[in-house]
């Protein structure tokens, strides 16, 4: 663990990045649908954190979710890898969208 002993005491939000919120919400929604009992997920999350104590919390959360969904037959590991590769490709191709630091359209001021 790097950083100060009690990091982010003043951080106003619970999520450090949007993907963390997304990973969190996915599991909550799937649980609400009745696809698994909460302790099933909690046990996997604990195991994941124990197995990888240096891994960020929501990475453990995500990995625990994937393992559970694969074991339940709700997600196929191969299809998941294909989808993740597709996301990477999509993001790379999206990178021609360069920053524009001036207005792209101007509706000029009009005299009274």
């Amino acid at each position: 663990m790097t950083g100060p002993l009690l990091p982010d005491l003043d951080r106003p939000k619970a999520f450090a990045a949007p993907w963390e919120a997304q990973a969190f919400a996915l599991v909550v929604k799937l649980h609400e649908r009745g696809l698994f009992e909460w302790p099933e997920f909690a046990a996997r999350l604990s195991a994941e954190i124990h197995a990888h104590p240096d891994q960020p919390y929501y990475v453990c959360w995500h990995e625990a979710a994937v393992e559970l969904l694969v074991d339940k037959g709700l997600v196929e590991a191969g299809a998941f890898l294909d989808q993740a590769r597709a996301v990477v490709r999509f993001r790379a191709s999206d990178h021609h969208h360069v920053a524009r630091l001036t207005p792209i359209a101007v509706d000029p001021a009009r005299a009274g």
């Binding site: 997304q22 990475v59 995500h62 989808q83 993740a84 590769r85």
Partner: peptide, 10 residues
Amino acid sequence: IEISARVKAL
């Protein structure tokens, strides 16, 4: 694969 992409893929 970067974690945000994995979460998005899921």
